[in-house]
Design a protein around this nucleic acid. Structure first.
Lengths: 150, 150
DNA sequence: AGTAAGATTGGAATGGTTCTAAAAAGAGAA
DNA sequence: TTCTCTTTTTAGAACCATTCCAATCTTACT
């Protein structure tokens, strides 16, 4: 079982950092890793309540902050609703945010090194780079096209 | 004077869109255009109060939303404090956000077309692309280096 | 087991943003 | 100009995500 947990990079990361592996942290890390979504804190909390009915929203915030601090997940802001979203996928990629349905697609094809190089050329010490593209996903673009023909 | 105002792309954009050019909107547009900063709503409001002591914060929000809707300015999220920042500069560039002092530097050297092409390859209809790089500016990197040697 | 540091909890406090109703200002017609 | 209608501004309340807090519970270690 311990081996199974350690195959989760979020749990492994917390272990390596020497923080306590509490039941709450493990549950959140497991769910984040398997969800493959870009959830808000509230969505994480709602999911947790099914398995862990007493988990506090503060714990969700604490754990998400911890994971961000350990560089195991990333924050993804500026979606239409006013709440922060979290990115469990740690490999660099472009986030394609659909203005229609709010879905976030991941585009792993783009190489970020040119971006980092450009920043470094301004004597800027790069920690991480994030690219967000706003627009319409295929489904919403089709639907919007239909509406405009009415 | 009207010519002078029209040299401001934000004012010109509002004119072209056919919205009313009120004193408040002009004042905000002028300040945004000349500031060259990445201000929060509250900073815009504070600046406005010097010239327009009765301007409401709601008007600042309304005007900023209008300018975003008209694609004349852009939102820049995810700075450490929990408030939205606005980008008056409309030419595409990378935002270099310093984790030390919070300053946002603009890097105009990078060409965004590759990013848009990568998104388009996923059948995504691109509206705009934004790149944010987190790290340390030259001053903060030097200072942090000094501290770590203490 | 005992202990001390760290984590969780629930509720209150904070603060950015949005909403609302009423007053003010703009645009157009007579 | 003056009247009228629409849009905008205003001030403050409401909203909601996030943070803070004190008390309680866990964990890791001896």
């Amino acid at each position: 079982m311990n081996d199974l947990l350690c195959s989760n990079p979020l749990i492994k990361g917390m272990q390596d950092a020497g923080v306590r592996l509490t039941a709450q942290r493990i549950a959140i890390a497991q769910w984040l890793h398997h969800s493959g979504q870009h959830p808000t804190s509230r969505e994480v909390h709602a999911a947790m309540l099914e398995y862990h009915p007493t988990m506090s929203l503060a714990t969700v915030y604490n754990t998400l902050s911890l994971l961000v601090e350990l560089d195991l997940i990333h924050e993804v802001g500026s979606i239409e609703d006013g709440s922060m979203r979290y990115e469990p996928n740690n490999s660099p990629h472009i986030n394609l945010v659909c203005k229609g349905c709010g879905t976030i697609l991941d585009d792993f094809a783009f190489d970020m090194s040119a971006v980092k190089a450009s920043a470094a050329a301004h004597n800027f010490a790069v920690h991480d780079a994030s690219i967000t593209v706003h627009g319409l996903c295929e489904a919403c673009a089709t639907q919007q096209g239909d509406i405009s023909h009415e």
